[in-house]
Design a protein around this nucleic acid. Structure first.
Lengths: 205, 205
DNA sequence: GGCTGTCGAACGACCGTTCGTTCGCCACCT
DNA sequence: AGGTGGCGAACGAACGGTCGTTCGACAGCC
């Protein structure tokens, strides 16, 4: 029996020829540096040493390239986050791990993460909506850890779940703005320090 | 005795004709919605009901318009922040007030704040540097509050000043991304909840 | 000999900016 | 009061260039 038709979201992202992959990486880098609208097909072509028109042997449109970068970025965060959420450990430990994973992911793929955060709003309505779903799913994961922690009596029962989740995400999502590769602190140390602050707070005990 | 020549930074930002001000507001709105590179002079002109070329009776260039929006945004944050830093009150109170002021400013001028945060990187080197100085000054203000709190024994002596400051800024700077006018919570409530979390932490005492 | 990948020319649209011109308004002069 | 000259604001055409995209031709490889 022939295999069932794959769901759209499970389709291989594209025929992964080496050239095509190179184009994806160049797009991530250029879009992150110059922005989507600030990057022309000429810039892309120059980066690969090609003519503008030749790019269309590999892609359907510039927009498709943006979606690919953004969507891959979203998937990476989701995948690593899921692992942290499903750990068998106290909420504090899982929160710590999620922050570490988040920042590791952001730094490992700094270009894609920057595009994911800054340029996704330039996608057309329908594609933007499909990214929004993944964003919501991710935020829900953070919320569930906080909720678990409160239920277990580890976190303060009067803590505001939504705001705690937003604080976690903002810490992670703002890191790309100041992090520069080669600094003294690695992703793990950065994630741990943020988690420490979030969990224990500034005030003396 | 004639008044001393004004310092450059004190000069009125531009001849503030009503039309010119209107153009500034339209630029803030369009740049925040479509991005700097995604906004054409045609978009601007349409917003005012003018021809593309007529805009140049009021401005020198599109870039000048971007700088104006970004620079005014920076000044607003600095001004309100300074007031909080110089309060005669414990560090925790001043931190709370700075966060509230920050979020009030961001929400009151949501367009300009969005442009300030997202589009400043498209300024040419020299103008970008002059904004960077203001950003650094602002971050230093936050750091000084945390340092004071530690010295006074209110904040934990092992708190990481840089990371605490970054957490405060990221909370404030990420708000524009999810805040939508008309929600149930005002800027004051939002700032207070973030401050509460930052100061007391998630963990039970 | 077909398939893949590239070239390079061309498409129409739009880019930011310049410019000569017009037009209404207001201060000033007689 | 009536004339006049200057001025700010806007028009609309035009500038050279770039935009994203299409396409026929062709080279090299399996």
């Amino acid at each position: 029996m022939a295999p069932v038709a794959e769901k759209l979201t499970d389709l291989p992202r594209s025929a992964p020829s080496p050239r095509r992959a190179e184009l994806g990486r160049a797009a991530a880098r250029l879009f992150s540096e110059r922005g989507y609208h600030g990057t022309s097909m000429q810039h892309l072509a120059d980066a690969l040493g090609l003519q503008r028109g030749s790019l269309y042997a590999h892609i359907g449109s510039k927009q498709e390239l943006l979606f690919e970068v953004v969507d891959e970025g979203a998937d990476r965060f989701l995948e690593r986050g899921r692992a942290a959420v499903h750990m068998a450990a106290p909420a504090a430990t899982r929160l710590r791990q999620l922050l570490i994973s988040h920042i590791e992911t952001a730094i490992e793929h700094l270009d894609a993460a920057t595009v994911f955060l800054n340029e996704w709003r330039y996608l057309p309505e329908d594609l933007r909506a499909s990214i929004q779903i993944k964003r919501d799913r991710y935020e829900e994961m953070v919320r569930s850890i906080v909720t678990d922690g409160i239920a277990a009596g580890d976190f303060r029962s009067d803590a505001d779940v939504s705001f705690a989740a937003r604080l976690v995400l903002s810490a992670g999502n703002w890191t790309y703005a100041w992090y520069r590769p080669g600094g003294e602190l690695g992703p793990k140390e950065i994630g741990e320090r943020f988690a420490e602050l979030l969990i224990r707070g500034l005030e003396v005990a």
